[in-house]
Amino acid sequence: MIESGLGQEEERARTAVQEAQSGNAVALIGSGDAGVYAMASPALEFAATDIEVDGVPGITAAVAASNLLGRTARP
């Protein structure tokens, strides 16, 4: 388990890539969707072709919130 604070996003992505390069199965976690202003970009940037990067889609807050719209629009 490798945890770090806000503002260390690039470092986290680098750490995840390094762990994967040394043979570990790594989960780099975030909230919402990894592709929406999140960790996918730095991770893909640092990853070379020697490791496989799988994106797992997530439900980002804007999508969750938009599904409340119909409900609030009805009287």
Partner: peptide, 19 residues
């Protein structure tokens, strides 16, 4: 799918509050 990915991993990297 995210839960499966988490359980397959041997190393978890993340922001403290998400972990």
């Amino acid at each position: 799918r995210a839960i499966t990915a988490l359980q397959r991993a041997s190393v978890i990297v993340g922001l403290d509050q998400y972990v």
